[in-house]
Design a protein around this nucleic acid. Structure first.
Length: 860
RNA sequence: GGGCGAGUGGCGGAACGGCAGACGCGCCGGCCUUAGGAGCCGGUGUCGAGAGACGUGCGAGUUCGAAUCUCGCCUCGCCCACCA
């Protein structure tokens, strides 16, 4: 059902989106209007928006996310670029398997039907997706190459297998990557269940090799918050590794990592992680029972309990001593779970005077606290650690280094330790290698077999893909359903040709998405993952858009993958995404994240059926800044629909159509009461004054060219809401112009044509329809982008605000070339200004040319 | 606890250090109508009859001039969180 907007005073047809939207989409499809041609001579432009998981239905958030980049893609194409804007589906993943368990439908069938539904919903949006490049990661033609990629990384030593304590989701029965464990309570990113630790043999990608390179964002136009999050996640710390000799005979020294080697004279004890390999050997007989009990407790604890800062420090003395290499002092060795096994060396020198955690521990267990760094001339604080790290700290009580500035001492002490062969400068990172094994069915099988004789062996590339069998049992048992599939399990060792057992884990779906942008370049390539020529042509992605929630997941994995493949010689570039923009998230009406379980998912289908696709697109882009998002509220969509209705009417005015006249509301025409007059001198009422026809046309052209300039800038900056506001203003000006009898003039035609071109990226259907109705050549979407003429955009008169002491008191209308002395004279002559000046001379008159005048009174 | 970001009418939101509230919703009044839940026209920050005064979370500061810059505080959101 369509709202009718009466076409007053015109012979235009009804504004009825249902009558043309589908028709134009069919035409674009038939003409392959949006297909990106590899051989196009124009400059390439690769614009990508993150592909969705095929969850079932396209919701309002998908529309919101896709419309923004679609607008930019369309504008850039009209600006003369050969734009590729592909779309596909991230179709491996757990929900498909859960659907299989819950509803007894095979994941493949469930995924296929979801893709089909979402593809058709996507098409109603009227985006310029190049569907000829569509891909789905669960397609064997795709995951064959995901497996191939695994083998490339394996051969390069970037994929390895290790026993590791891993985060395990007890509900989804699957291992998670560190990046997939969220929040203070350490819950699963997917289902929210608290994770537990498990020791398992797992496959890892060596992303830590690229930690330093991933810290560099040089030449990348990425949002600052994303860069910060990645930087913090990588967590580079510079400091020193220091060996502490152990008293026991024949024991190796214990190596610690510290960022504050300048505090070593205050190291009064050592703490090892309970898991530290030296613990068992160093523990004295009389302490062994306590130590073993503590280690066992620590092992049983969940990550949550262990990581809590609130919790009181615990630990035990292991009955051994080390020697502080600087003081030669004998210091006790403790174990405590606040020292983490996976970071640094898993052991610390404890400096309670200068570390809050060590301070708390020392206080509880009555260990000595010695201040060795203090503010210049300051005193040791009472009852707390001194952790500040500023420029004016000096060492005290530190032997030969006493009196040295702390910043300097860091280097000096590290050097001396290095000279003594007791360590040296070191760098550590928080980031861990990427755990890619998943004990699940619906993913790309890891292409490895295990031979009794030859161990883990890569599957030869010519045997790819390793296909997922269809006939499996989907009960969630904690092991992959593939483990009970005899036929799948049996493989052949490439070394000896003997029987080998297949790896049954599949790959994290983030492996799939770490390279899909490469596949889009040559999606039908049968013999290779990609055609190097096509990748050279299209990559890197010029502009990538998507949600900020992928800051440390997908976006970092994709960067890693590209750097690894570059180093393997597959291409030259080292970054996949030159520019990145994040859309905000559309929340449910209840301000919560939209989810089926909350029942707050807004579906656009009803709105599209009622208002048409263009109105929904324009409304979504109008509600606020695109990068901000917000709770979904369809109130106000009528206003946007009305706007398109006014466009419909205004653009179809026949010569001679006119209505009541009001020059007042055309932007650029100053209120006539002020024009050319001394302010305050009065004049005829605004709404009865007419400009001449020539003046009205000039004003309309000015409005047109100002709008071209502003809308172009707004689109480039992703400020779609203000761009639409500007087009609403131009539309209102055109409606007024028609009422003034301008329909049929060149200025009117120019305004209408430019408005349609500017609006085309936001509302592709109505603009195509109106373009055709105006007898213009198909398609509006291949027309050149309008360019503003600065000469026409410039107003010949200026309206200057006149302030007194910074407060607006009057306005001055002057011609552009009025000299400053004249402006000052007019300002001072103003009645309002005189009132505030009270006969006194101004202390000062500030003029910002073309902006305003501020008269400063002498004051009291 | 740390880092980042945001607080503007009844609502969504505008505003290179220079006219606060663009544009739209809603509301009020009018027109047109058998009718109006359509459409069109006008009004709409708050207080005040008015002139005018006051207004961008709170408090200071810089400036001729601050929603915008600086400092402190409050509230909300996101990310990280015993990372030595």
């Amino acid at each position: 059902m369509t709202t009718e907007i009466e076409a007053r005073g015109t012979r235009a047809g009804r504004f009825d989106p249902a009558s043309y939207e589908q028709r134009w989409r069919d035409r674009w499809e038939a003409d392959a209007l949006y297909r990106a041609d590899d051989d196009d001579p124009r400059d390439k432009h690769y614009l990508l928006t993150m592909y969705p998981y095929p969850s079932g239905d396209l919701h309002i958030g998908h529309w919101y996310a896709a419309t923004g980049p679609d607008i930019v893609a369309r504008m850039r194409r009209m600006s003369g670029l050969n734009v590729m804007f592909p779309m596909g589906f991230d179709s491996f993943g757990l929900p498909a398997e859960n659907a299989a368990i819950d509803r007894n439908v095979h994941p493949a069938r469930w995924t296929e039907s979801n893709i089909e539904r979402m593809r058709s919903q996507f098409r109603t949006m009227g985006c310029m997706f190049d569907w000829s490049r569509e891909l789905a990661t669960s397609d064997p033609d795709y995951y064959r190459w995901t497996q191939w990629l695994f083998l490339q990384l394996y051969r390069a030593g970037l994929a390895y297998r290790a026993m590791a304590p891993v985060d395990w989701c007890p509900r989804d029965q699957v291992v998670l990557a560190r990046e997939q464990v969220e929040g203070a309570d350490r819950h699963c990113w997917r289902c929210g269940t608290q994770v537990v630790k498990r020791d398992l043999e797992q496959w890892f990608f060596r992303i830590t090799n690229y930690a330093d390179e991933l810290l560099s964002f040089e030449g990348m136009d990425w949002p600052e918050p994303i860069r910060l999050m990645q930087t913090n996640w990588i967590g580079r710390s510079e400091g020193a590794e220091i060996d502490f000799p152990v008293e026991a005979d024949a024991a190796d020294p214990i190596r610690v990592f510290t960022t504050r080697p300048d505090t070593i004279f205050g190291a009064t004890f050592m703490v090892l992680a309970p898991e530290h390999p030296a613990v068992a050997a160093l523990t004295s007989d009389e302490r062994r029972a306590d130590v073993e009990a503590y280690v066992a407790t620590a092992r049983r604890e969940t990550e949550i309990e262990r990581m809590s800062t609130e919790r009181e420090k615990t630990g035990v003395f292991i009955g051994a001593h080390a020697v502080n290499p600087m003081t030669q002092e004998r210091i006790p060795i403790w174990i405590a779970d606040y020292v983490l096994p996976g970071y640094g060396t898993g052991a610390i020198m404890a400096v309670p005077a200068h570390d809050e955690r060590d301070y708390e521990f020392a206080t509880k267990f009555e260990l000595p606290i010695r201040y060795v760094v203090l503010p210049a001339g300051g005193e040791a604080p009472q009852g707390e650690a001194f952790v500040a790290h500023t420029d004016d700290e000096v060492l005290v009580d530190s032997g030969e280094f006493t009196g040295m500035a702390a910043a300097e001492a860091i280097g000096a002490i590290t050097r001396q330790l290095a000279d003594l062969g007791l360590g040296g400068p070191a760098v550590t990172y928080k980031i861990r290698d990427w755990l890619v094994s998943r004990q699940r069915y619906w993913g790309a099988p890891i292409p490895i077999v295990y031979c009794d004789e030859h161990g883990a062996q890569p599957v030869p590339e010519d045997q790819l893909p390793i296909l997922l069998p269809e006939d499996v049992d989907f009960a969630p048992t904690g092991v992959s359903p593939l483990q009970s599939h005899a036929e799948f399990l049996s493989g052949t060792c490439p070394e000896c040709g003997g029987r080998a057992r297949r790896e049954t884990d599949t790959m994290d779906t983030f492996v799939d998405s770490a390279w899909y942008f490469l596949r889009y370049c040559s999606p039908r390539e049968a013999e290779r993952a990609w055609d190097p020529e096509a990748v050279r042509r299209w990559m890197p992605v010029d502009l990538y858009t998507g949600g900020a929630e992928h800051a440390v997941l997908h976006l970092m994995y994709a960067r890693f993958m590209v750097k690894a493949l570059r180093d393997l010689g597959h291409f030259e570039f080292g970054e996949p995404f030159v520019a990145l923009r994040n859309q905000g998230q559309i929340l449910g009406a209840d301000h919560q994240r939209m989810s089926k379980s909350r029942g707050n998912v807004a579906n656009p289908d009803d709105l599209v059926a009622r208002y048409g696709s263009d109105t929904v697109r324009a409304f979504l882009m109008f509600i606020g800044p695109w990068d901000q998002g917000g709770p979904w509220n369809p109130t106000g969509i009528d206003g946007v629909h009305r706007f398109l209705g006014r466009v419909w009417n205004a653009t179809q005015a026949a010569p001679g159509d006119r209505g009541p006249v009001s020059a007042r509301d055309i932007p650029g025409i100053p209120p006539p009461s002020l024009a050319g007059e001394i302010p305050g001198s009065g004049g005829p009422p605004a709404d009865r004054v007419l400009g001449t026809a020539e003046e009205l046309e000039r004003a309309l052209r000015r409005a047109t060219h100002v709008t071209i300039s502003e809308v172009t800038g707004d689109y480039e900056a992703f400020h779609f809401n203000t761009a639409i506001a500007r087009m609403m203003e131009l539309t209102n000006a055109i409606v007024r112009a028609r009422e003034s009898g301008l329909a049929g003039t060149d200025a009117y035609a120019e305004a209408v044509d430019r408005l349609l071109l500017l609006l085309a990226p936001v509302a592709p259907h109505i603009t195509e329809e109106l373009w055709a109705r105006r007898g213009k050549a198909y398609s509006i979407h291949t027309q050149p982008w309008p360019v503003a003429d600065p000469e026409l955009a410039r107003a010949e008169t200026l309206e200057l605000p006149v302030q007194v002491d910074g407060k607006l008191r009057d306005r001055l209308v002057v011609t552009r070339d009025t000299p400053p002395e004249e402006i000052e004279r007019l300002a001072l002559a103003s009645e309002a200004v005189q009132r505030y000046l009270g006969g006194r001379a101004p202390r000062r008159v500030v003029q910002i040319p073309g902006r305003l005048v501020n008269v400063v009174t002498p004051g009291d």
